[in-house]
Design a protein around this nucleic acid. Structure first.
Lengths: 230, 230
DNA sequence: GCTCTGTATCTTGCATACAGGACGGAGATT
DNA sequence: AATCTCCGTCCTGTATGCAAGATACAGAGC
């Protein structure tokens, strides 16, 4: 017991449970568009495909439902979520609200840390744009927005964002792909936001964010409407 | 098939799953202070007490964790959540943000419906104050705040509120009880909010709401600090 | 040819069985 | 007396088995 103090920092994180592993795997599969909206997911098929029993699969699906990534229909089955245009509109409105509040907090209490985070996120987006796939860019985009919640100092705000971020990220990879010129426009908007943040211009920042998210909302809505029509 | 149209309306709602029943029962138990903060919950004990197997209990606990009502420690057990003063502060800040945004939406798009809802919620609070238990009053208070999200027209906002409303309600019943004069003060604040809403004075409304929630935050924080100190 | 009905087969919902980690207390050791 | 160690007991994590609802399709009856 004498040397206890010295080894305090060796605490290891325990191995992830199967539930967590399955959850993360499925989450990734949905977000990265390995599965399509509305696709059926059988617990049995998943469990044998992943090499685990149905129990952890079932629990993971329940968690994903809470994140809005799958829809569980009693006695029928589980399906990848299938957003409607209205869904997307509400989602984006909500998202704007969260990000706007988070940014205000960041500006007030963690200005330099947030700025650092935004800057390196922008760098990642640059790199992805130069040499990565579109999914790489989408991931970097997701990372940019997550910075706000990392530094906003309110866990609940972060949790709320996490509960919708999966859907947002999925929309990005599923729908944004066909839109030409999206990436360049998105990049420039992000840069403008960083600039406004650096100068502490909260009102401008809010306007930019609103424009950025609501434009995305309309773009996604268009794609969805076109898809459901044709 | 000829008489199909006539019996369309006979559709029955399916029986709730055991998971849902257990979840609601436990949620009620925690919110109504049948269990204390930090109390241990054994899956085995719960399942035999409730007369179901461990499986639905386990799933229900997982859902409650997502709502922040219990804390699951791997390989150790599940415990009723135990808020710290900081927790409560963040929670209330977040709550103010949600309610403020919801109220703005209500005022813009569902003024009369919201006003009706607020009015009858106030009536319920009156009734509870006159002849009910303190828990009845707490429930009515919870109902008042839920009105905003019923009419705000954004499901995500409502979901976000639901994900913290359990904690808020639990704090109300667990902590508000010892505070003398709270109820009268709370009532008058609610009335003022209804008045401001009816007159469409958004700025006033926001100020009242902020005052209402932040005062609750400080009160809860005091009680918690006193409890952890003594 | 069309409608209805029975059934085969999918799905999930729940119960139970088993394995392994965490913790506490009794006993051994210094 | 203090401490270490071992073991019993509790707990959760996971696998599996069984029952029952949902669906699609084939065949009977008109």
């Amino acid at each position: 017991m004498t040397s206890m103090k010295a080894i305090r920092r060796f605490k290891v994180q325990q191995p992830k449970s199967l539930v967590t592993i399955v959850e993360e795997r499925l989450r990734k599969a949905i977000i990265d568009a390995e599965m399509r909206f509305g696709e059926a997911l059988s617990e049995d098929a998943l469990s044998s495909a992943l090499g685990v029993s149905r129990t952890p699969v079932r629990e993971a699906l329940a968690r994903l439902q809470l994140q809005g990534l799958v829809t569980i229909v009693p006695k029928k089955g589980t399906f990848v979520f299938a957003p409607t245009a209205e869904d997307v509109a509400e989602l984006c409105t909500f998202r704007f609200m969260l990000e706007s509040n988070a940014l205000r907090e960041c500006l007030a209490t963690a200005r330099v840390a947030t700025l650092d985070g935004m800057t390196s996120a922008i760098a990642a987006m640059d790199a992805a744009q130069a040499s990565g796939t579109r999914h790489d860019y989408a991931r970097a985009d997701t990372g940019f927005h997550e910075v706000f919640f990392l530094h906003c100092g309110n866990r609940y705000l972060g949790n709320a964002y996490r509960s919708v971020s999966g859907r947002v990220a999925a929309l990005r990879t599923h729908l944004s792909v066909p839109l030409e010129g999206e990436q360049a426009r998105s990049m420039s908007e992000h840069r403008l936001m960083v600039e406004a943040f650096a100068n502490g211009r909260l009102a401008d920042l809010d306007g930019l964010l609103r424009q950025h998210i609501l434009r995305a909302r309309d773009a996604y809505g268009d794609v969805l409407r076109r898809a459901s029509a044709g």
